[in-house]
């Protein structure tokens, strides 16, 4: 009896609510950490621009392009899409672009398509390609990628036009260039 009396004077804290909250926080940080590392690579510092707008919603494929001078990062001219990395073993290795084209071909086949406004022979997928290139990526890498995505060139040689008939081309034309506002640093 004496003990019972003692207990009633002790202040008992109900920790259930706190634990619920802390669990939610943990789950949030686990998921948030995963999401941000999934498609967006951290070693890229995108260039600053003034007219940039919010990233639009909808289906997108993020093409991460690393700068050739990224210290401690992946080697020169590598392209990463999701978990796949395409590496060029030097400026004159074009195999990475051909592999990127294969990936885009598969994405094109899966996507919903609409005929193009200007050129109805072309079927345009409703997917946005986001080119997330480092500020110090060599311009030629972006230049080559822009050739590859429209499928108007031979993926193994961007100076030669693609020989497939227009109806069989798999162009992506909606391109977003990832950037940041000049005031915001990373």
């Amino acid at each position: 009896m004496a003990k019972l009396k003692l207990e009633s004077t002790e202040t008992e804290i109900d920790m259930t609510a706190m634990i619920d909250l802390v669990f939610l926080l943990i789950i949030f940080f686990i998921l948030a950490g995963k999401i941000s590392s999934e498609q967006r690579s951290q070693q890229i510092t995108v260039p600053p621009t003034k007219t940039a707008t919010k990233l639009p919603e909808g289906d997108r494929i993020i093409i991460n392009v690393f700068g050739s001078t990224t210290i401690g990062g992946p080697p020169a001219n590598s392209i990463r899409v999701g978990t796949q990395t395409f590496e060029a073993k030097g400026i004159e290795d074009f195999s990475a672009y051909a592999k990127l084209r294969q990936l885009l071909d598969r994405a094109y086949d899966r996507a919903d398509k609409k005929p193009d406004v200007k050129n109805p022979t072309l079927q345009i997928p409703e997917v946005v390609l986001e080119i997330r290139a480092d500020a110090d990526t060599e311009y030629r890498v972006v230049q080559e990628i822009l050739q590859i995505v429209t499928d108007s060139v031979d993926p193994n040689d961007a100076m030669k036009p693609n020989t497939v008939p227009a109806q069989e081309m798999k162009p992506f034309i909606a391109i977003n260039y990832t950037t940041r506002r000049p005031g915001e640093n990373k």
Binding site: S36, R40, Q42, V46, T49, T51, A52, T53, K54, L55, P56, D116, K118, N119, T121, L122, I124, V128, E130, R132, L146, V149, T150, S152, P161, N162, A166, M169, P171, F172, I173, A174, I175, N176, Y177, T178, T179, R180, R181, E184, N185, K186
Partner: peptide, 19 residues
């Protein structure tokens, strides 16, 4: 990831071999 923005563009389809 820092607050990233985007510049939207459309590649021309009325040029080159496709057209």
């Amino acid at each position: 990831t820092p607050d990233e923005k985007a510049i939207a563009s459309l590649m021309p389809t009325d040029k080159g071999q496709a057209a």
